[in-house]
């Protein structure tokens, strides 16, 4: 895996490069926003670690420029700025995740793994969650080779949950993502579809957080 690191602090940059190397990953370290590539070669870079407070300009503008150009490479924003506001700003501005200084190196590494996995999953044709296999392009799902007979809504719901197994997906997110199939979706409709999906794939595979949302058990 190849990581692009954009961080102006010498100690932190050196330390991070060392940690990435221990993980067996290669990295390129830049210290100024103006050195950052205008285009991200998606074949070469698996993940970007971006410091927000660069000496020659905000990392935000860099991020926005990449996203505006349509680059989907996962970006994890690193910042020492005040917590909540920057996090909101960064996530809205197209960051995949957000890490506040000072951070735990193992946590950063696991977040890199998570965003890269998620991004790889987005582009791959087959997603495996245990013995559950979801093929979004072919509109097929199976458990241990046994094909599942799912309605369009149930399949869509499964896809949304399988995008990020182990994460709780809020009902409001599900409602937003299911909308395109036609009529607006309200929460009770989602509950019905989830309950039907449970019957077909096994109740223990989907956990409910009451009032909040659902999680596909990884």
């Amino acid at each position: 895996m190849h990581i692009l690191l954009i961080e102006d602090d010498l100690d932190l940059g050196r330390g991070l490069q060392g940690a990435l190397k221990l993980e067996g990953w290669t990295s390129e370290w830049l210290r100024r926003a103006e050195d950052a590539p205008r285009r991200l070669d998606e074949a070469m870079v698996d993940c970007v670690l971006l410091d927000l407070s660069l000496p020659d300009g905000s990392g935000f503008s860099l991020l926005r420029r990449w996203r505006a150009a349509g680059h989907a490479v996962p970006v994890i924003v690193i910042t020492a700025r005040t917590a909540v506001e920057d996090r909101l700003c960064g996530l809205d501005g197209g960051a995949d995740d957000f890490v506040l200084k000072p951070f735990h190196t193992p946590e950063l590494l696991s977040r890199i793994r998570a965003v890269v996995r998620r991004s790889a999953r987005q582009s791959s044709n087959t997603w495996m969650v245990g013995d559950l296999k979801v093929e979004p392009i072919r509109h097929e799902a199976s458990i241990a080779g046994q094909r599942l007979d799912l309605s369009a809504r149930e399949f869509q719901l499964l896809v949304e949950l399988a995008r990020d197994p182990g994460a709780v997906i809020a009902k409001v997110r599900l409602a937003q993502r299911l909308e395109p199939l036609g009529e607006p979706v309200d929460f009770s409709v989602i509950e019905v579809h989830v309950s039907n999906l449970r019957k077909k794939i096994g109740a223990e595979r989907i956990r409910t957080v009451r009032g909040v949302g659902y999680m596909l058990v990884p």
């Binding site: 994460a167 809020a170 949302g213």
Partner: peptide
Amino acid sequence: AASLVQQALARAAPQAM
């Protein structure tokens, strides 16, 4: 506000579990 709270709880839920 409902959606805001729901999403905040969704983020915290895996840790709670």
